[in-house]
Amino acid sequence: MDFEPNDDFERELHQALQRRPAPPGLKLRLMERRRSQRPLQLSVVWQRLAASLVVAGAVAGGFAWRNREELRRAENARQQVMIALRITGHALNKMNAQLAAHNRSAQQ
């Protein structure tokens, strides 16, 4: 892109504003900063990954515990129903036997 100054002043300004060379060692210092930031960035990534795994593990563990707890409660309830049925059956058998004995004595 060519610059066309309109007069001496603009030419002088253009001349004065030539790019300055970067300070010696700028690139070296920059690359050192870049290197020192890289492991930090990697460690941050690993930390985030580890934190994500911990959270995922906790959530999965929570779901598993809740599932097992529900199964345990269901099994307890089933056993209680079975006990109730056994008691009821036993009571009905007893009452049946009594009714049968009563019928026999009534016929005699």
Binding site: R19, R20, P21, A22, P23, L26, K27, L30, M31
Partner: peptide, 10 residues
Amino acid sequence: VDEHQSMVFS
């Protein structure tokens, strides 16, 4: 960096 350090710094 080589190409543009002078521009950015200036």
